[in-house]
Amino acid sequence: ARGSHLYDPKVDVGSVVLAPGLKEGILSSVERFANFREYRRRSPALDEALPYGTGLTLMFCGPSGTGKTMMANAVAAHAGKKLLLVDFPLLSSSAASDGMNEGGSAASRFQSVFREAELSDAIVFFDECEQLFAQRDGGGSSQVAELLTEMERFEGVVFLATNRPYDLDEAMYRRISEVFEFKPPNHVERRRIWELLTSHESIPCEGSIDWEAVALRYELTGGFIKNAVLAALLAAVGRQRNDPIVTEEDVVEGCRKQMRGALQMRDFDRRVVPTSGLDDLVCSDAVRTKLRDMIDLEKARGVLFGSWGFGDDMRDRQGTAALFWGPPGTGRNRAAEAVGYELGRPLKAVDLPQLLGRTGKANAASVS
């Protein structure tokens, strides 16, 4: 059907690096559903008890680059099934066009997608599905009802991936079997991703590269790490086309490029996007040491709460406060930006006099 693409996924499930238990939980859900379908074939009376809505719909939610699309491909390959990738904007526009020009209905286009999946015994994958199920109050698609009806009739597996789960239509949540949260990888998982991506003989790397240090310093998701590896390989090939060797300098420069891209993706009011880190900061050795200690503390906090099992609720109550003082033009803002760059976080600029106003007291709503 126009607006969808059926293909055989090639991703090995062993190459997907996720938080402990996440991959196993997804695979277990799909395997249990396969057993359920077999039970249903042996128990036709079940159709009387559950006449509709017996398919499996899993939602993968999390930031961009955390492995949602890769996992969908890996699960389909592991199950020996094809994957039907749905481009909802194209599907929706073609459905509307067919309805207007041919006297048909929008539902017919959606029916054809699920019919194709049923005939091919394929898993249906809606990537970036917030475009599909935008909240109706926010001007979401008028064709959501038809699509939800077809999803409910479908007796196979559907994957939904989104980095904005709160934008999904309320009616969609009633049709989701299970939700899996994909979080950014911790430094141990990042190191594993680096090792997997650079283990292939076609990406020759210097043996002296400290992957542990790279993974700890650059807090990138898997998608950005892949891009950094490609950037590093391009640099190596540019130096020596026939016998390239990726150096640690290539890797670091590739990471710096991806850090800038990752920072640009985060959007909020009065955002300041850092462009360079401590290496480019002109300051005294004493100041540089204090800034490095603060950055190391924050990275250690990530290890403590990300790898050692302490809960996220404890992490939310922790923080670091630093006072940068001195005459104008001495680099205070530049130092703050360098810290943000090293931590992979943009800065939110706050005008303190404006925040305090005439009373000299901050309003809680303004601070948040």
Rank of each mutant, 00 (worst) to 15 (best):
A72S: 14
S15P: 01
I225F: 05
R32V: 06
V273Y: 12
K299E: 09
A286F: 11
I245C: 14
E146N: 13
A286P: 05
L27C: 09
H78Y: 03
F36Y: 14
G62F: 04
G156V: 00
G311M: 08
D137Q: 12
R270G: 03
G139R: 13
G261T: 14
R32Y: 10
V179Y: 08
V350L: 13
D296Q: 13
K257N: 05
L50G: 00
R345A: 15
T69Q: 03
L18I: 06
A236T: 04
E146A: 15
P184M: 09
P204C: 07
P184F: 06
S142I: 10
D8T: 12
L119F: 11
P51R: 07
F310P: 00
A145R: 13
E102H: 15
D267N: 14
L147C: 04
G344M: 01
G53R: 02
K361M: 11
R241D: 09
Q258W: 05
C129E: 07
N101C: 04
S368P: 00
L84K: 08
L278N: 03
S141E: 11
R192A: 13
T149A: 15
E201Y: 03
G53T: 04
D250K: 01
E181Q: 13
M314W: 10
D316F: 03
E298I: 10
E102C: 08
V157R: 02
A96K: 06
V86Q: 00
N363P: 00
V179C: 03
L220P: 01
F114H: 09
G104N: 11
A364W: 05
A235R: 14
D210W: 12
F180K: 01
P165Y: 03
G309K: 06
V113N: 08
I209A: 03
S112R: 06
S28Y: 13
S93A: 14
F110I: 01
A365M: 14
M172C: 12
G254C: 07
S93N: 14
D12W: 00
L132E: 02
N186R: 10
A145H: 15
L278P: 02
H187Q: 15
R41C: 08
G3S: 01
D312F: 11
N101F: 09
R292W: 12
L22Y: 10
E178R: 11
G55A: 00
A171F: 10
T289S: 15
F114M: 07
G140F: 09
W325T: 09
D121I: 10
K226A: 09
L22D: 01
Y7W: 03
P353E: 05
V30Y: 02
L148H: 05
A161S: 14
L85S: 13
R270C: 02
R115I: 07
A1M: 12
L347E: 10
N227C: 07
Q131V: 15
Q264I: 11
W211E: 08
L83W: 00
Q143K: 06
Y166Q: 15
G139F: 03
H187W: 14
A77H: 00
K183T: 15
K290A: 08
A145W: 06
D280P: 00
L132Q: 03
P204T: 02
L119K: 14
I245L: 15
V113F: 01
N35A: 14
P328G: 09
K23Q: 07
A236P: 01
K10F: 00
R266C: 10
S92A: 13
G309Q: 08
K10L: 00
M294T: 14
D169T: 02
R334D: 06
K226M: 12
R217S: 12
